[in-house]
Amino acid sequence: MSDWIEACTADDIDEEDVMRFDHAGRTFAIYRSPDDEFFATDGLCTHEHVHLADGLVMDDIIECPKHNGRFSYKTGQAKGAPVCVNLKTYPVKVEAGKVLIQLAS
């Protein structure tokens, strides 16, 4: 079973930026890439529990606001110290200006 959840509208996020989305007791980060694609990952850094949506997006990298841990938000891959655990990613689609993310059940 899969569940598509509306996270925000496409206009809520600038290009090369990120916003936080909380749903059902969980927290996610939704990204808009410089080439206008949308992505979603778990909202908290895998190093310390810090909200990634407060961090800086550069190209396809999200940088943790606290300790500069870097991840690819497209693949979730951790890019080196201090982060070594990858970030979980979620499928995203945009329909009628709405950004939907798929939370596997």
Binding site: V50, H51, D54, G55, L56, E63, P65, K66, N68
Partner: peptide, 11 residues
């Protein structure tokens, strides 16, 4: 509060 200044400090 929290990480509110982080992004601008990084920039």
């Amino acid at each position: 509060p929290g990480s509110s200044v982080a992004r601008d400090i990084r920039l």
